[in-house]
Design a protein around this nucleic acid. Structure first.
Lengths: 260, 260
DNA sequence: GAGTGGTCTAGACCACGCG
DNA sequence: GCGTGGTCTAGACCACTCA
């Protein structure tokens, strides 16, 4: 029975490519099917997915196999297990997950507690994507993108100046008001207002010197060293959905990273 | 039987704290026992540990339980599974794992291929630990440490200037020649020459301006922005064993990070 | 107490590496 | 062909949550 095509709810649909002998474990196939349901929106962020037993029955495999599939999805932060309650679709839109990808922390007392940033939207408009941005987001050059420029201040001090570029089609109608609401939880807003869930991101870091305009916005002398952080965030299936170019002041904070 | 104290080879040794009812899964206890053997050096880096079946017999549990323990240790990069061959103690001392923790990559063509760095040891001496270094490495102020200062050059260009501090007792007798040998594989050298295996690390990143001395060593104008990377590396049991303060040129390379 | 995830077991079979 | 890790199953029991 194992490693044969999987019966779903509708065992009639046997879409098999006969010329692909590639072996793949059953639990990987299950993982793929769950992923499909996730992408298709069968279960929305925050909702519970069916219990392991239900899924096992649906896919006609043992509970242990479903378990292993869910384990991997949980390890990738796509699902969240809660003992006694169920397994839930991960979401940025609840609790205090704020600053999902932000690794800038105060030098003193690693506490990331509270310290709610003030956000100042400088710009939020629809533009034609510059060539490089288009390429990075896998759009055609000249496609519409939403560009946002903002400054985040911590403890009253401007600390981060960043530009965001978002694909125009997925983020049609994004307003400065929306960006300003949802304090701190930008990715939660993307989820709730546009149904776009970011799953992972890649960052490129550099040290750069502040040009006069940047220096003014961050209240530092021109030429000051700043940490440049270029982030590409992806939804399901490694589709890039956000490009961010940030400049961080690192005089009172630092970028913290764990290696293993 | 589960969740009762574990019989080891010598079931006589029942070192139980009766006042600690803390529940911990069997596989976690097994993981702890394997970890102890690892720390004690029962199996050296690169060697195979006993097969799952052997370990199951030794600890009097099922193979599945051992499996889960090993799974976690493999996920933490302490063990490496190789189907058909066995499970091995992870090591820096073999193959081409070079630059274990270095995340600086060329801007063009993400290939990290070859590009062997030239290393230039500027200094390698035994000193009394400065207060801050001592605190970070959990030594007493004034304890001996080995301090190394070096410049790494890629493609002929000086790119990284870094200082290393290593606890004097564990690294007694470290010479500049040893640092210069083992091209690129510093952590491999630590393993082979001193039996110290680094397991994980934490980094703090900042943008700073080059002072005149640093600028000269890195062949950039004074005041140029540099990426400051402070790394604390740990052996087993979260014991800090190396402090590194590096300055990276990021004009042709960048620090690459993955977030999830 | 019913339902959910979490642990543990025992046994079967598969894929891989190597002699 | 043997031994290793890798997958899959089926069933038992435990811990947690909530009505």
């Amino acid at each position: 029975m194992p490693s044969t095509p999987l019966p779903d709810d509708t065992p009639a649909a046997e879409a098999q490519a006969p010329a692909a002998p590639a072996f793949s474990p059953l639990y990987q196939q299950i993982k793929g099917l769950i992923l499909q349901s996730l992408e298709a929106g069968e279960w929305k962020p925050g909702e519970a997915i069916p219990s392991e037993i239900d899924l096992a029955a649906r896919f006609r495999v043992s509970q242990g196999t479903v378990r292993k599939a869910i384990d991997e999805l949980a390890a990738e932060n796509l699902l969240v297990r809660r003992q006694g309650k169920g397994t839930f679709v991960a979401t940025h839109a609840e609790q205090h997950v704020q600053y999902r990808f932000l690794k800038l922390v105060p030098d003193t007392g690693d506490r990331e507690t509270a310290d709610p940033a003030e956000r100042n939207i400088l710009e939020c408009r629809r533009v034609r994507a510059p060539a490089e941005v288009a390429r990075t987001l896998r759009l055609r050059p000249g496609d519409a993108v939403v560009q946002v420029r903002r400054v985040l201040a911590f403890a009253g001090e401007p600390t981060i100046l960043e530009d965001l570029w978002l694909p125009g089609t997925a983020f049609k109608g994004l307003t400065a008001e929306q960006m300003a609401g949802y304090q701190g939880a930008t990715y939660a807003m993307f989820e709730l207002e546009f149904g776009v869930r970011m799953v992972r991101a890649e960052e490129k870091l550099r040290a750069v010197a502040a040009d006069p305009g940047q220096a003014r916005l961050l209240a530092v002398p021109a030429g000051s060293p700043l940490l440049s952080v270029e982030r590409l965030a992806f939804t399901y299936n490694d589709v890039p959905m956000e490009l961010r170019r940030g400049l961080y002041r690192t005089d009172k904070r630092h970028y913290r990273n764990e290696l293993s």
